[in-house]
Protein backbone atom coordinates (compact mmCIF):
# COMPACT_ATOMS: atom_id res chain seq x y z
CA UNK A 1 0.00 0.00 0.00
CA UNK A 2 1.88 3.01 -1.25
CA UNK A 3 0.32 6.45 -1.56
CA UNK A 4 1.96 8.85 -3.96
CA UNK A 5 1.17 12.48 -4.68
CA UNK A 6 1.98 14.21 -7.97
CA UNK A 7 1.62 18.00 -8.08
CA UNK A 8 -0.67 18.92 -10.94
CA UNK A 9 -1.78 22.05 -12.75
CA UNK A 10 -5.28 20.66 -13.37
CA UNK A 11 -7.69 17.97 -12.16
CA UNK A 12 -7.44 15.44 -14.98
CA UNK A 13 -4.80 12.96 -16.12
CA UNK A 14 -4.15 15.05 -19.21
CA UNK A 15 -3.21 18.03 -17.01
CA UNK A 16 0.35 19.20 -16.95
CA UNK A 17 2.67 18.39 -14.09
CA UNK A 18 2.92 21.44 -11.74
CA UNK A 19 6.50 21.96 -10.60
CA UNK A 20 5.46 23.97 -7.54
CA UNK A 21 4.76 22.06 -4.35
CA UNK A 22 3.08 24.38 -1.82
CA UNK A 23 1.52 26.47 -4.57
CA UNK A 24 0.54 23.66 -6.95
CA UNK A 25 -3.01 23.97 -8.32
CA UNK A 26 -3.98 20.35 -7.58
CA UNK A 27 -2.59 17.25 -5.94
CA UNK A 28 -3.02 13.99 -7.81
CA UNK A 29 -3.26 11.09 -5.33
CA UNK A 30 -2.07 7.84 -6.84
CA UNK A 31 -2.42 4.44 -5.21
CA UNK A 32 0.60 2.67 -6.65
CA UNK A 33 -0.82 -0.80 -5.90
CA UNK A 34 -4.09 -0.36 -7.78
CA UNK A 35 -3.15 2.48 -10.13
CA UNK A 36 -6.20 4.44 -8.97
CA UNK A 37 -5.97 8.22 -9.10
CA UNK A 38 -7.96 11.07 -7.59
CA UNK A 39 -7.48 14.85 -7.59
CA UNK A 40 -7.69 17.29 -4.70
CA UNK A 41 -7.57 21.08 -5.12
CA UNK A 42 -4.79 22.71 -3.12
CA UNK A 43 -6.59 25.05 -0.77
CA UNK A 44 -3.36 26.77 0.28
CA UNK A 45 -2.07 27.69 -3.16
CA UNK A 46 -2.81 31.39 -2.74
CA UNK A 47 -1.90 31.64 0.94
CA UNK A 48 0.17 34.69 1.73
CA UNK A 49 2.28 32.74 4.18
CA UNK A 50 3.41 29.20 4.73
CA UNK A 51 1.82 27.45 1.72
CA UNK A 52 4.62 24.85 1.65
CA UNK A 53 4.30 24.02 5.34
CA UNK A 54 0.53 23.69 5.01
CA UNK A 55 0.86 21.37 2.03
CA UNK A 56 3.44 19.29 3.90
CA UNK A 57 1.12 19.08 6.90
CA UNK A 58 -1.65 17.84 4.62
CA UNK A 59 0.61 15.17 3.09
CA UNK A 60 1.62 13.77 6.47
CA UNK A 61 -2.02 13.74 7.60
CA UNK A 62 -3.01 11.86 4.44
CA UNK A 63 -0.24 9.34 5.14
CA UNK A 64 1.39 9.98 1.81
CA UNK A 65 4.63 8.04 1.29
CA UNK A 66 6.04 9.75 -1.75
CA UNK A 67 5.63 13.17 -3.40
CA UNK A 68 6.65 14.01 -6.95
CA UNK A 69 7.13 17.73 -7.55
CA UNK A 70 9.55 20.20 -9.10
CA UNK A 71 10.81 21.88 -5.96
CA UNK A 72 10.35 21.77 -2.19
CA UNK A 73 10.83 24.80 0.05
CA UNK A 74 13.11 24.50 3.09
CA UNK A 75 10.28 24.46 5.65
CA UNK A 76 8.26 21.86 3.77
CA UNK A 77 11.36 19.74 3.24
CA UNK A 78 12.23 19.74 6.93
CA UNK A 79 8.76 18.59 7.88
CA UNK A 80 8.52 15.92 5.19
CA UNK A 81 11.94 14.54 6.09
CA UNK A 82 10.93 14.33 9.74
CA UNK A 83 8.02 12.07 8.83
CA UNK A 84 9.85 9.99 6.23
CA UNK A 85 7.91 11.20 3.22
CA UNK A 86 10.02 10.57 0.16
CA UNK A 87 10.51 13.62 -2.07
CA UNK A 88 11.13 13.08 -5.76
CA UNK A 89 12.18 16.05 -7.84
CA UNK A 90 11.25 16.01 -11.49
CA UNK A 91 12.14 18.80 -13.93
CA UNK A 92 10.54 17.56 -17.15
CA UNK A 93 7.45 18.95 -18.86
CA UNK A 94 5.07 15.98 -18.66
CA UNK A 95 1.39 15.21 -18.29
CA UNK A 96 0.18 13.50 -15.12
CA UNK A 97 -0.68 10.42 -17.22
CA UNK A 98 2.91 10.20 -18.45
CA UNK A 99 4.23 10.28 -14.89
CA UNK A 100 1.67 7.68 -13.72
CA UNK A 101 2.70 5.42 -16.63
CA UNK A 102 6.33 5.81 -15.78
CA UNK A 103 5.70 4.80 -12.15
CA UNK A 104 3.57 1.74 -13.04
CA UNK A 105 6.15 0.43 -15.52
CA UNK A 106 8.75 0.05 -12.82
Amino acid sequence: MSKTVITSSGNTLTSKFDKRFGRAEFFCLLDEATGQTSFIANEFKDANHGAGTKAAEFMVEQQVNKIISGDFGPKAKELLEKFDVQMVILQEELTIQAIVDRISKK
Partner: peptide, 20 residues
Protein backbone atom coordinates in the same frame (compact mmCIF):
# COMPACT_ATOMS: atom_id res chain seq x y z
CA UNK B 1 -4.02 33.71 10.09
CA UNK B 2 -0.32 33.42 9.20
CA UNK B 3 -0.15 29.63 8.78
CA UNK B 4 2.54 29.51 11.44
CA UNK B 5 1.09 26.57 13.41
CA UNK B 6 1.56 23.00 12.24
CA UNK B 7 -0.53 20.33 14.01
CA UNK B 8 -0.74 16.75 12.75
CA UNK B 9 -3.03 14.61 14.92
CA UNK B 10 -2.15 11.30 13.28
CA UNK B 11 1.48 11.60 14.31
CA UNK B 12 0.83 13.70 17.46
CA UNK B 13 2.95 16.55 16.18
CA UNK B 14 2.41 20.23 17.03
CA UNK B 15 4.84 23.07 16.41
CA UNK B 16 4.99 26.82 15.78
CA UNK B 17 7.07 28.07 12.88
CA UNK B 18 8.74 31.14 14.44
CA UNK B 19 9.64 32.68 11.09
CA UNK B 20 5.97 32.96 10.13
Amino acid sequence: EFNAVVVMPSVEFAEVNASL
